[in-house]
Design a protein around this nucleic acid. Structure first.
Lengths: 214, 214
DNA sequence: GCAAATTAATGATTTATTCAAG
DNA sequence: CTTGAATAAATCATTAATTTGC
């Protein structure tokens, strides 16, 4: 328990050499009397340790039985993206209409748990769904208000406005009315089988959690 | 897959507390209304549980500090935001100039480990640093090219050419010329001392990892 | 010389845009 | 075409550097 750190990733690194980039980009005000307090045996910063060992690009999504993770290259893993079921979508929309905009960590956790009953899903899927749905609803609305005077083509009639009764006591935030409120972002551990061996070899996956804004 | 979705722990963000006062506040968990999830997965999906329980809507705006120390302060012991030391900045810049743009999970992990020698740092700090630095270098450059479009004076005479020894074997990718490549985002567990078994929620913190793109 | 007030940097979040799988 | 996924741009918020008045 404390400080276990393990990663699971799926990407390759990038070491690009920028020829010019230049611009010293030094801090303009380096005058700060900030000194590192520790001065013990600081290794001279071994650059090599930063080199990407290239080792572990992992696939994500469907995790097959990679007992010993085969150094699978990052080729698109099978079943890459989430494919929501009807129930999942329905619930998500219900929540959305109920006023939920950008769930926080706990909420995502729970939503994911619940939706997991209807099909495979991860926390980040929920997160992304809200992000996308919010954005797209907004842009759809904008398009409507603009094009409305023009061609009443898009049958986007009647916004649902179901206003579910969930006891969102005063906390339902409407789509556009929040002046803006900022909550801090939370970071959430997503999951993953961690039947790892000792030493924290469990692969973890996470997702960020944006509380919402503007 | 084992399909054992392990769950998520999460860490609340830092909520401003006393802007000026410093004192080791214990990290408090926001204490979410996370009721027992062990109610089996047979729950018919309780909508209520999804409603924003509060969990930290930070209305702010011109609002100032309230003195009320709600139990959800959760200020990190050290302080709120990462304050890089000179060494850390130096190394990061070195890496940046060396071509690193958006490190992947492993890289961040290592960088964080190394930089941790010089001061407190978390993985997400590294991640954010690269994001911000990249963006700000870019905008600085743009601003320059616009304002100084006529001065042939390239103030940056000699490119550093330090050519860090990292054996970026064939992995060097250019900044702007990459046609485009997209890799999936990775999410990495950052770590965390989690003590305080508040109903078994270890606080974990993570950071996302973008491979880079475009 | 110090400390409150001001300004400049920059860490952290949110939103908008883009890419591509299905 | 729809939409999940990912990145970049914009924005917010906080800390440091700097200035100012004593």
């Amino acid at each position: 328990m404390g400080t276990s750190m393990k990663v699971h990733q799926f990407a390759r690194g990038f070491w690009e050499q920028e020829p010019s980039l230049s611009l010293g980009c030094k801090r303009l005000r380096p005058l700060a009397p900030k000194f590192n307090t520790n001065s013990d045996s600081i290794t001279p910063f071994d650059l090599k340790s930063f080199i990407k060992p290239d080792s572990g690009p992992r696939k994500l999504g469907s995790d097959h039985d990679h007992k010993r993770d085969s150094p699978q290259v990052e080729t698109h893993p099978g079943g890459t993206r989430w494919n929501p079921t009807q129930e999942q979508i329905g619930i998500l929309e219900m929540l959305y209409r109920g006023g939920m905009r950008t769930p926080n960590a706990q909420q995502i956790e729970q939503i994911t748990a619940q939706l997991g009953r209807y099909g495979k899903i991860e926390g980040k899927n929920v997160f992304y769904w809200f992000q996308n749905h919010k954005a797209r609803e907004r842009q759809k609305q904008k398009r409507n208000s603009l094009g409305l005077s023009h061609s009443p083509r898009s049958t986007q009639a009647s916004t649902i406005t179901t206003t579910i009764t969930l006891d969102s006591r005063g906390e339902v935030e409407r789509e556009g009315d929040s002046p803006y409120k900022r909550k801090s972002r939370s970071w959430v551990l997503e999951s993953l089988e961690l039947e790892e061996s000792n030493e924290g070899d469990g692969t973890l996956e996470l997702f960020p959690l944006h509380p919402e804004g503007r």
